[in-house]
Each structure stands twice: as C-alpha cells, then as structure tokens.
Design a protein around this nucleic acid. Sequence first.
DNA 1: CGCTGTCGTATTGTATACAGGGATGTATTG
DNA 2: CAATACATCCCTGTATACAATACGACAGCG
Lengths: 244, 244
Amino acid sequence: MRRGQRATVNLADRAYEQLKAMAITYQFRPLERLAEADLVKRLKVSRTPIREALNRLVTEGFLTFTPNRGFQCRPLDAKEIFDLYEVRRTLEASAANLAAERATDAELDELADFLKRSRAAPDDASVVDLVSLDEEFHERIARLSRNAELLRILQNINARIRFCRWIDMENGRRAATQSEHAQVLDALRARDATRCVAVMNSHIARRLDQIVDVIREGYARIYMGSYSQVRPARARAPRVPAEP
Amino acid sequence: MRRGQRATVNLADRAYEQLKAMAITYQFRPLERLAEADLVKRLKVSRTPIREALNRLVTEGFLTFTPNRGFQCRPLDAKEIFDLYEVRRTLEASAANLAAERATDAELDELADFLKRSRAAPDDASVVDLVSLDEEFHERIARLSRNAELLRILQNINARIRFCRWIDMENGRRAATQSEHAQVLDALRARDATRCVAVMNSHIARRLDQIVDVIREGYARIYMGSYSQVRPARARAPRVPAEP
DNA sequence: CGCTGTCGTATTGTATACAGGGATGTATTG
DNA sequence: CAATACATCCCTGTATACAATACGACAGCG
C-alpha cells in the first residue's frame, strides 16, 4: 500500500494496518490511553515500528497524542464527524463536477457496471460490505476527477467516518443509497455538472442531520463491543501523495 | 504547536519544524535522497527523532518514501500543484460559503481590520511576508467557517503550495490580491453566500492557469538557490485534528 | 481533615547497536 | 569488448538500552 511500488512488507507498515483497523472499529475505547508496552506484546514487534505506526495515525487523525503521555484513542466526537461530513460533501460534489467534465464514456460505462454488480449483492449482506460498496462508488468518481489529492483526502475522510456509516447503514439505507447513486450516474452521463453537484450534495447532506443520533448509537456499540471483531473489507489508501 | 497544550519541546518536534521548513523552501533538490546520517549531523539529534519527523512529512505530502531506500524530496510537479490548487479552490469556496452563514458581525469587523492592516504593509515588503498575509486572510475565513477539518486540510495545502505562491507573488500580484480580498469581504458582509463562492472561486482560479510557468520559474529558483535562506514567517498548523 | 511535598514506579523520549537489503564496482567469462 | 555474477560497503529497518518525565502513594504539616 504505502510506499509506492515495492512489495516488501516492513513491520511498521503491518503495525500501521493493524492499528488503523483497530482504531477505525473503535476497538480502543474513546480517550483510552494506548500503552506502547501493551502494543508490543499484542503485535509482537518492538516499540520502534509501533511508534512509527502510531505517529502516522495521529497525523491522519485516527489517534491523538500528548507529549510525555503518549497516544490515545480519538474521542467519538459529534462535531468532528459533522465537520468531516461537511468537508466530504464539498469534495464529493467537486469530484462529481470534475468527473462530469473529465471522465470518458468508457469509464462511465464501467461505473454503471459496478453499480449493477453492487445491486446484485445479497439482501443479507453485512453493513460492512454495503458500506464498502458505497465507498467504492464514491471513490471511483473521485478517481474520475483525475485529481489525486482530492482522492487522497477523501480516502482519509472515509476511513475516519466509516464507523458511523456502518451504523447509519443499518437503518435500511440501502435502497435510498442505490437510487441516489443511480441519479448521480445519470447526471454524469448527461455531462450535466450542475446536476451532478446538486444530486451529490443532497445525497450526502441527508446524512448530515442524523449524526448526533448515530454518535449516540455509536457509543452504545463501542461499549457493547458490537463491531469489535470486524475487519475492514480490504486494504486501502496509499499513504503517499500524488502519488508521491 | 503540535500536540495540544504542553510546552515541552521534544527533539522530534523540533526536527519536524526544521525539516518542514527546509522541504517547503526546497532546500532539498527535487528527488534528492535524504540520508538519515547526514541529517543526524546537520540537526544534531539521533536518527530516532529524525525518522519520526521524516515520517510525518511523508504523511503530510512534503516528502516521499521508498522502502529500503529511504526518504526523498518531493518532485516539484505541475500536476500535483495543479491538483492542490484545484482542491484548495473548492475548499476555500466552501469556507467562504459557510463563513457567510456562521461568522458574527464582530468577526467580520476583525477581518476588515486585518485587511486594512495588510494594506499598510510597505511596498518593498518581501514576497514571503506578502504571501504570509495572503494566507492569513484565507485562513481567517476558514476559521470563520467553524470547521476544524476544513481548516486543517487547507493549512496543509497552503504549506505545500507556498513555494509556488512566492513565485507567483513576485509578478505584481499584490494589488489584484488586495482588491479581490476586499470583494470577498464585501460578499461576506452582505451575507451573500453565492457571491462569496463566485468571488473566491475566480480569485483562486486566476492562479490556476499559470502553474506551468510558475513551476518552470520554480526550478530556476531551486537550482539558483534564491529562496534557500528563507525561513517561514511563523510557526504553524497544529497537527492534531479537531482537536480530536 | 485536607493540603502539599517527596519518593518510587511506570511510561515515554532518545540514542545506539546490530542485522539485512540494495547498490555499486570489479572480476571473470563468453 | 560486453555482459553477468559476485563481493563489498553503505544505508535503512528493527530492537533494545538508557535517560527523562509524569503519575500515584504516602507521609508530614497546617
């Protein structure tokens, strides 16, 4: 993933992936202090790669840090999630706008194909899988915007709000999601940038006003351990820019 | 800076600030390999804090990394700068939009005041200072959007394109910048979100089509060493989110 | 009874040793 | 002469030892 090309797996990267997965699923309790010695025992590597991984996760917003006190799990904070959704809405609208200009017809066909395959997912698919499909649809559009930085930022935001989207997806969001995605595709095919922006905006805005409830539910999940055993569906997100 | 409250200065943070300043000013040549042993000698700290700093800078997009080969200076890449400007334009427009809704009258008065003081800067002010004032104006608006994530992302983007903005500012951009800023302020005071977005968009878009030229000039500067001795005007950008 | 200061322990911050992989240069062979 | 294989050296990746700091407990004092 990270670090461009080579397949070498170094311990720091592995620790990063593991810790990130744990942070996303809130296997650490909000504000819980992460003692490095514990993680050494759990991940079976020395402090050096663990600290490297933890530092990256701080930079990416998955953990917090206090000097001489170490790393903590980020709080599940309604304001933060709200801000992230707001930024995401802006960026996704922009991505759709750009994609309407820049995507080839063939690429839009592929997108349509993906949407079709998504609809074929079974009714009892897990929320984790459904959110994963949802994310991929949006990520594909971001890719069609041809803007690597936009894509990178969105991937980070998506990972940070993923936990909330699992919860959100549980209340029969699937049908609405699918029809809204279809509308986005229509607008893209029509090359109607204005409509793209409008549809994407309202698609995401609909979720914005429910965050407080989702957060409340989220706390319940964390302390009841509902998603703790979950593993993210796929490895993700190169770390390096453009890619640098 | 980083790490919320405590004033303790650890070596890793200091190394981070120094290396970041060097990366921004391209004191490293594009694609130059940064040998850790050299940095140890130059910064007079051991490899551990240096590696921590370098890793952060990779995550933030100031450096690149190749496994088993270490860290390199990012290339001065037109596509990357273009992408960053494009994202910036979207986010700044959004920030202005939100600020028009959320800023108090008193806050807009302060902004007006800042603009007035900026105009008082001497004619022979350095481009570094002028860009710093420019950035601060935009950063203030981002703050008025009340969206901590938006602010954070913009700060990162600003640092990454700062080098190009120095060059851009050299061709008598000052007057145009000031009048455009005044227009943004007007639109904010009128609480006219639509006009805010429009004005901000064109303010930034004007720069977009000159990037290729700026990059070309940038290479000349790097290899002639023009900005090498420059120090960024002020310490910046908390690392931690919302604060998460 | 509560507050404050000091000591001990646990945890983080930094340096450094050591191991392994990559790149380069040389020698040998076709 | 060119190409390839090998050896060597340098640099990165990881572990670990040591230093510094914070936290908690306990005791002394007001």
